[in-house]
Design a protein around this nucleic acid. Structure first.
Length: 361
DNA sequence: GATGCGTGGCT
DNA sequence: TAGCCAAGCAT
């Protein structure tokens, strides 16, 4: 077997100059050449939102955050509750808490300017090794070795890395550090991620369009899809629970807030039971939050990362105007669509009362 | 190193 | 359809 020529960063950059995706938070290669520099706030905000989240899902949230909080000082001054409401539906809600905390730190301890080094960035909550390198490269044009899922996929194929993830990460980081140049490091990082997102995809990669196809060991062997090597995943366990959706005659729905940490931490929910492993026909001895005529409205099935939830929905429309129990509140029909409700809770409310969480016009 | 942590789209 | 997947981080 003949050794392949090594992949060239210059070749990738030339490809990027022609095929870079246009994204709301990105300074394209042409503008960069003209000296336009990225706003670190926008780079940071986009990178946090993009953690384990698709570009399509992020776009509307990014636009919404930017319109409402145009700089880090504005975000630092925002009430946490408003940030959580704005983040609702995007998932991984600890990101929103860390986002707010990091904004306050930058505003208070760094004079409103983001640290320009990987070490400084890593010290901020919610910024790990990937995000620190990405911001350093993209916002500050530093030759940081950016390694995300795209880079892992591209380089594991180009170099046919047989070590399974996540153990392979050390080797991949070394490979990426060797490729990262002092010229255009920000564009290089984004080029690698664009290549992974549009050409070197997990399934059916478009190798005929790839600038590195002649340099790729996996392609040479015709086994692109066998990289990166990953361990088998465990089966998703089942959990069950009960949710109570009470709606007053004026349309207000009874809500409460979840604990600050853990699953859906700090978000809003309808009252209900704990969500327990469903080993058998165990009793979901759920206690209703208020006395009313509760009626079964069916179930909501929702898939979290590490378990599948089947939530039985009970609904009631009390005739009188019962007081909200301790720790609960009645959210008016007008306020409800803007509450910090995670998707599973919107599903629960919609199952009980269709249209209740939709904004009217 | 393993685990907990969301959601929606795609095949 | 049921699984797989997406620019990871904190503990």
């Amino acid at each position: 077997m003949t050794a392949l020529p090594p992949p060239s960063p210059a070749t990738l950059l030339a490809w990027y100059d022609r095929h870079a995706r246009r994204l709301p938070w990105r300074i394209g290669p042409a503008d960069r050449r003209r000296g336009v520099t990225p706003d670190p706030y926008r780079v940071w905000l986009s990178e946090i939102m993009l953690q384990q989240t698709t570009v399509a899902a992020v776009k509307p949230y990014f636009e919404g955050f930017l319109a409402r909080w145009p700089d880090v000082a504005a975000l630092a001054a925002a009430p946490s509750e408003e940030v959580m409401k704005a983040w609702a539906g995007l998932g991984y809600y600890s990101r929103a808490r860390n986002l707010k905390a990091a904004a306050e730190t930058v505003a208070r301890e760094h004079g409103g300017r983001f640290p320009a080094t990987e070490a400084g960035l890593t010290s901020l909550p919610g910024i790990g090794s990937y995000t620190a390198a990405a911001i350093a490269a993209i916002a500050f044009d530093q030759p940081a070795a950016v390694v995300d899922g795209n880079v892992e996929r591209v380089l594991s194929r180009v170099f046919a890395v047989e070590t399974p993830l996540p153990a392979a990460k050390t080797e991949i980081r070394r490979l990426q550090a060797g490729l990262t140049q002092k010229e255009r490091p920000g564009d290089y990082a984004q080029a690698m991620m664009d290549l992974g997102a549009t050409i070197c995809t997990p399934r059916r990669p478009a190798c005929s369009l790839c600038p590195w196809s002649e340099n790729c060991a996996a392609h040479a062997a015709g086994i692109e899809e066998s990289f990166p090597v990953k361990p088998n995943k465990a089966a998703r366990p089942e959990r069950t629970g009960t949710a109570f959706v009470a709606r007053r005659r004026d349309g207000a729905v009874l809500l409460r807030r979840r604990a600050e940490k853990g699953l859906l931490g700090g978000m809003t929910e309808v009252p209900g039971s704990d969500w327990l492993p469903s080993a058998g026909p165990a009793s979901t001895a759920a206690t209703a939050p208020i006395a009313a005529s509760w009626q079964a409205k069916g179930v909501v099935v929702h898939v979290f990362t590490h378990f599948r939830l089947t939530l039985s929905i009970l609904a009631a429309e009390p005739a009188d105007n019962p007081a909200a129990p301790e720790g609960h509140w009645w959210s008016s029909a007008e306020e409800l669509p803007g509450e910090a409700l995670p998707s599973v809770m919107k599903k629960a409310i919609e199952t009980a009362f269709p249209g209740a969480t939709k904004r009217r016009r």
